[in-house]
């Protein structure tokens, strides 16, 4: 390899290594603690509108969740997993994501502004009833 080529390839290798290292560090930081009880929360406009304890689900069942009046999404829940099977959005990205069972893989719909986020029960700081 001549020095000219080396001069050009070294920054690329450094860049790729830096990106991989930073991404892995971020992955570790953002990864939640492994909890036995997984709770799925559906957020709409920043407030929780539906909550389900996925660890208590035995069979697959379908739930209709009303985000607001006239705006209904259909979700399917089973043991430790949740997915969206019908939503009136344009891109259907939420449906394409299929089953999620990890806090690191939230379902986010940018069209309808709702999110499904998984968390363990131990994440609660305060419970208000």
């Amino acid at each position: 390899m001549n020095s000219d080529k080396a001069k050009k390839i070294i920054p690329v290798i450094i860049l790729i290594s830096a990106v991989v290292i930073i991404s892995l560090i971020l992955l570790i930081i953002t990864r939640h603690k492994k909890n036995e009880e997984i709770v799925a929360k559906i957020y709409y406009e920043n407030s929780v509108i539906y909550e389900v304890d996925l660890s208590k689900e035995d069979d697959v069942r379908t739930v209709e969740v009303e985000l607001k009046e006239g705006l209904v999404i259909k979700i399917e829940v089973k043991k430790d997993a949740i997915r969206v099977i019908d939503a009136p959005c344009k891109r259907k990205d939420c449906m394409k994501m299929s089953w999620t069972s990890s806090p690191n893989k939230p379902i986010v719909c940018l069209d309808l502004h709702y999110m499904i986020i998984l968390s363990g029960k131990s994440d609660y700081d305060v419970v208000i009833e």
Binding site: N46, P106, L110, I117
Partner: peptide
């Protein structure tokens, strides 16, 4: 837009 930092999970 989402006003939620959870989206940052996708960053890595």
């Amino acid at each position: 837009v989402m006003g939620a930092s959870q989206v940052i999970y996708y960053l890595p």
